[in-house]
Amino acid sequence: MKIAVCVKQVPDSETRIKLDAPSTELDQSSFTRVLNPYDAYAVEEAIKIKEAGSDVEVVAITIGPETVTETIKKDCLAVGCDKAILINDPALADADESALATVLTAVLQKDSYDLILFGIKAIDDDSGQIGIMVAEKMGLPHVATITQLDLGDGTLTAHREIEGGKEVVTAPLPAVLTCQKGLNEPRLPSLPNIMKAGMKPIDKLTCADLGLETPAAKAKIKMYYPPAARGECKLVEAEDPADAARELARLLNEEAKVI
């Protein structure tokens, strides 16, 4: 069995965005970059399947600059992925989700994978599109936002989170899944494994290597804005909590008009 895990390096969730006024550019120089937290669930699930089966190979695939290599080593190879493919092509700097999905599809089609795992979304662009788009482009079934996965013989059953409950979905393999928190608890890499990860292969490719013209973006970012500023916080002062509660309820009702 062969499993692909598509992963993205993203700015750490602590990242503060430096932007005081609308701008056509976003300064990303100070960002600390890590593995997208949702992709960690995808990596973990692949490794669990590998550990439970025999003859399972797990390949991590990422599109990004050379600097993603450290993240790939530490958070993919050191926790159990067998190899990685890095598509590094400066022409993809302005790629949108559709363009990235086209490139990933080309990479995935070079091999035959039984399962292709994604995170539900990248926490930088917050799009949640690429996994589903790749499934469609490859003509494969997908189950998005999964919180449980059981593999059968050539089939899978997954739980998919929906409002107020879950759907239980079956699909034949090969299939595409997008992974949500709750699916598993991602492990941390051990120091010896981080050292050993350096020996695992990382194939480096460009669009040209894939026989692909750089796909054009279908949507373009024109402007970045800081979030609207909030006024001062109005503190409700009262000795007695009951009085504070009454005053707060009054303010929410009469002033803010939200209850």
């Binding site: 990242t15 965005i17 917050d126 054009a216 373009k220 024109k222 804005y225």
Partner: peptide, 15 residues
């Protein structure tokens, strides 16, 4: 919003 609301963008579709 992107970055979970730490920033907003204006996007123009070209299709």
């Amino acid at each position: 919003p992107i970055y979970a609301g730490k920033c907003y963008i204006d996007v123009e579709p070209v299709t």
